[in-house]
């Protein structure tokens, strides 16, 4: 599927990505986290559905400690929605598609 739609971001390019004009949903994950894998297909599907309206990206918390620390992330998967560089809201855990849509719609 369109897994290439969900781009990897790093501590280095994080700020520039969230401050773009397009709202942005960041999926914080790690390879050792089963539920992160569980939510993967849903996030990919949403990246397709919201293509052009919301950019959906993912950040590996093992490789990028600074950003998760800054946002006080203590559980994954955590998905944070940003608009114009500001955090709008977040959800944690392997939530369903409906809950993620509800989150995303807050930026539209």
């Amino acid at each position: 599927m369109a897994s290439d739609k969900v781009k990897d971001v790093s501590d280095a390019d994080f700020e520039s990505i969230i401050s773009s004009d397009t709202p942005c949903l960041v999926d914080f994950w790690a390879p050792w986290c089963g539920p992160c894998k569980a939510i993967g297909p849903v996030v990919e599907a949403l990246a397709d559905e919201y293509d052009g309206k919301v950019s959906i990206v993912k950040m590996n918390v093992d490789d990028n400690p600074a950003t998760p620390g800054k946002f006080g992330i203590r559980a994954i998967p955590t998905l944070i929605l940003f608009k114009s560089g500001e955090k709008v809201d977040q959800v944690t855990g392997a939530v369903g598609k409906a809950q993620l849509i509800e989150l995303i719609e807050k930026a539209l």
Binding site: W32, C33, G34, G72, R74, A75, I76, P77, T92
Partner: peptide
């Protein structure tokens, strides 16, 4: 506080502690 210190999955979240 779920996801902010309350967890149901030690494997997922242990490394944050």
């Amino acid at each position: 506080l779920t996801g902010k210190g309350v967890s149901y999955c030690a494997t997922c979240d242990a490394p944050f502690y």
